[in-house]
Design a protein around this nucleic acid. Structure first.
Lengths: 332, 332
DNA sequence: CTGAAAGCGCTAACAA
DNA sequence: TTGTTAGCGCTTTCAG
């Protein structure tokens, strides 16, 4: 039924080894022989069995990708970056969603190792101790993409979230605001709870602005969350006049919440978001936003992984990509 | 180094076959033996090699997913549906982007077959003849998700695009419009060029409304395309008073284009979109939209694929999921 | 430049 | 209930 390397060898009057060499582009084959083999391959429609090859060579040319939720814009962009570079290096991707659930992440890691992936790119909002341990004892290289882990040992690709957030808040302060709110997704997520929030507090402190806990709101980070959060904020004795927001979807929710309540952006409330997905331009006013280069983060993470897999020399395990603030109309 | 089934067998004083039985949950093992084996597995941290298993059993528990572009909201939602059901049935997913390019689709199909996937879910806006042939001669089952192919033979999951589009246009007609534009992505895409456009024309004809080619605009289907399309439409001697739009992103572009030109939705122009992604609610006015249940389409496609892979009986190879129009504020 | 042969780690009859 | 033994299809020394 299915044609194997053996069938090709027999038809071409050569050994399996020679067919293998031809298929793998090994140069030690006489052109005439190569031609003959190629013809038989064509004629028999031979398709190498990657599973057998994987077993024999201990390389599968597959990499695992563990991501919180592919249906989320943010992750999808990242995944595309990963995939493009993987394809370029002839790897295939085994994609799985973790829903940001530690148990699933652990079990996914195990499944992928069972499938003998050559490496793994992982995205996780919160790298717990046991995840960290699992990564450190992993038999194949792992690169974290857009995910924070303080450890020296684990490779990762990020931007400098802290500085980026500081710049955003600073911008709001420069525009004369002192009642600046901080609205983000879950604070358990390292990037929110540690980097962005700390940057917010530090920047305010440095400008001698008192920190008001009522102006710090963390929800699930969704559009509806943004809508509701504005209701909360608007009910304050003195509502904020500016908001630093954790992501675009949340920011759009806030913008609509503000507009629905009869106020304007940036007239009554200035907003700076953090993500700059294509959504940032799909709202009026368009969002000023810190640029989070998700595609690039994914691409660079995958590229880094290929270096590990090829045992190339790595100059820096922790890549920090540049960031900037894209000025649009939600801030002055 | 890596511990194999043989190591476990030796340590537990049983044969490889017995270990294999334990690992695979075969009932023909004495409880005491099972316990002993399980202990050794635990102690040695044995992890079955799925590649070897795949080679021996000719099943990989992996399915291929070929999708135009995962960074596109539409596909990401579909992919999530596929993944969830795949996980439920203990399959892993090998995901690849085709960019809606026939050559890539063909080569991806080949790669996946080489990797011995047990089945494939494919999404394609235009199933060309050669793709169709490739699918028909494929050694493993393939299910098309949200993709149209007239052939009896090929399994697929869709909604009734024609009827859905008719209902939308009919709604606009009922609201008193006679200058109704049709704006969509590429007409080469079967769903646009054949189903939606035909439905549009048929519905107009049945209402004795003359078809005006100037009111039919197909671009790339993006937000910016929507913005520009309104500029074109607005420049007409008599601009349309209602628009049937192919997808949400495009519709939002149109809405903003209309609003930027000083007109209102639905006051001056009514809009009905086709997709109902979460974007539909993230714009003011919120979009009335035909509900395209992408997650469900993906999930049902994957479920159907599992039936094929298990050689279960299939009652219907062509699943049509129900649709409806979600009324919001962009139409009256 | 080419071939022979020993595995890779596991499953699946077939025996016992 | 358990063990023995062929392979699965390919890569990779090692000879020649």
């Amino acid at each position: 039924m299915t044609v194997t390397i053996y069938d090709v060898a027999r038809e071409a009057n050569v050994s399996m080894a020679t067919v293998s060499r031809v298929v793998n582009g090994n140069q030690n084959v006489k052109p005439a022989t190569r031609k003959k083999v190629l013809e038989v391959i064509e004629r028999l429609e031979y398709r190498p069995n990657a599973v057998a090859r994987g077993l024999a060579s201990k390389k599968t040319t597959s990499v695992g990708v563990i991501i919180p939720d592919i249906s989320n814009n943010l992750n999808a962009e990242l995944a595309r970056g990963i995939e493009d570079i993987a394809t370029m290096y002839r790897y295939n991707i085994i994609l799985a969603n973790s829903d940001q659930n530690e148990e699933k992440e652990l079990s996914l890691l195990d499944t992928m190792l069972g499938k003998q992936v050559d490496g793994i790119v992982m995205m996780s909002e919160e790298v717990t101790d046991s995840i960290q341990r699992a990564i450190e004892t992993c038999p194949v290289p792992i690169v974290l993409a857009g995910s924070i882990c303080e450890t020296e040992e684990i490779a990762s690709v990020n931007i400098d979230y802290y500085t980026a957030a500081k710049e955003a808040v600073q911008l709001l302060i420069s525009n004369g605001h002192s009642r600046i709110a901080f609205v983000s997704g879950p604070l358990q997520y390292t990037v929110n709870g540690q980097h962005k929030l700390t940057a917010y507090k530090d920047t305010l402190a440095q400008a001698n602005i008192e920190i008001n806990e009522a102006l710090i709101v963390a929800g699930d980070g969704s559009y509806d969350d943004g809508l509701e959060t504005w209701a909360t904020l608007a009910a304050l004795d003195v509502p904020p006049t500016a908001i630093f927001v954790g992501n675009d979807e949340l920011a759009i929710g806030l913008v609509h919440g503000i507009q629905d309540s009869g106020k304007t952006v940036p007239g009554d409330v200035e907003i700076i978001s953090f993500e700059n997905s294509k959504l940032a331009r799909m709202v009026r006013p368009q969002l000023t936003s810190v640029v989070l280069p998700l595609y690039d983060i994914g691409a660079v993470a995958m590229r880094l992984l290929t270096k590990f897999m090829n045992k190339e020399e790595i100059d820096e395990k922790h890549v920090i990509l540049p960031h900037r603030v894209e000025q649009r109309d939600s801030s002055k």
